[in-house]
Amino acid sequence: MAGMNQERMLQVLRAPHISEKASVQADSANQVVFEVARDANKKEIAAAVTKLFDVTVTHVTTANMKPKQKRFRGRPGVRSGWKKAYVTLAEGNEIDFLDGATS
């Protein structure tokens, strides 16, 4: 998407989603998981990742995470839902969020 400006790119990608499942996907399928804007589409996500991290994106899969019922100080409440994107990178491309930090 040539018409996507820098500000929209930063709005599309909210944060990397780091979890045990995301780590497994990164190792086995060369995928990175991001929390993205709810209104972002796959083309926007691919363009933003390509531009910001200078990698080649081969595939994007999105999933809407439903809001969860939780209790806050004994009162029922609802956590807001969010959208995540599984971004498959081309062979040889890598995004390292931990900057090589190992425990």
Rank of each mutant, 00 (worst) to 15 (best):
L52P: 04
L89C: 08
V78K: 12
K70I: 10
Q6R: 07
G92P: 04
T88R: 12
M4P: 02
S19E: 02
V78P: 10
S23V: 13
Q25L: 13
V33S: 02
G3T: 09
A90T: 15
E91V: 15
Y86P: 06
V60E: 01
A46W: 00
T102C: 06
A101H: 08
V87K: 03
F34W: 02
T61P: 09
V24P: 00
G81T: 09
D99F: 05
D96Y: 03
K68P: 00
F72W: 14
K68V: 04
N30Y: 07
T50S: 02
S103H: 14
E94S: 14
M4H: 03
T61S: 13
E94L: 13
A26R: 10
D39T: 10
R73K: 12
L98F: 09
N41A: 05
E7S: 05
A2N: 10
G3A: 07
K83C: 08
E7F: 06
G81I: 10
V12I: 06
R75A: 14
A90Y: 13
A22N: 04
V60I: 01
S19T: 08
G77W: 11
P67Q: 05
N93K: 14
G100T: 07
Y86W: 13
E94K: 15
N64H: 11
A26N: 08
F72L: 15
P76Y: 14
A40G: 01
Q31N: 11
K70E: 07
M9V: 08
G100K: 05
F34A: 00
N30T: 08
V87F: 03
D99I: 03
H59I: 02
L13R: 01
H17A: 12
K68S: 04
K42H: 12
V55S: 02
Q6M: 07
R38P: 12
L89K: 05
E20W: 10
L89V: 10
F72E: 13
S19R: 04
E91C: 14
T56N: 13
V33I: 06
Q31R: 11
K68A: 07
D39V: 10
R75E: 15
V60R: 00
V33P: 04
T102Y: 05
I45P: 01
D99M: 01
N93F: 14
K70C: 08
M9W: 01
T102K: 08
A15P: 04
Q69E: 14
K84T: 09
R75D: 11
E35L: 02
D39P: 06
Q31D: 09
R38F: 12
E7D: 02
K68T: 07
D39F: 08
T102L: 07
K84V: 10
Q11V: 08
V57G: 00
R71F: 11
L13G: 00
V87C: 06
R14S: 12
V55G: 03
V33Y: 06
S80T: 10
A90D: 15
S28L: 15
K70V: 14
I45L: 03
V87G: 02
G100S: 04
A22R: 05
G74V: 06
E94D: 12
V78N: 13
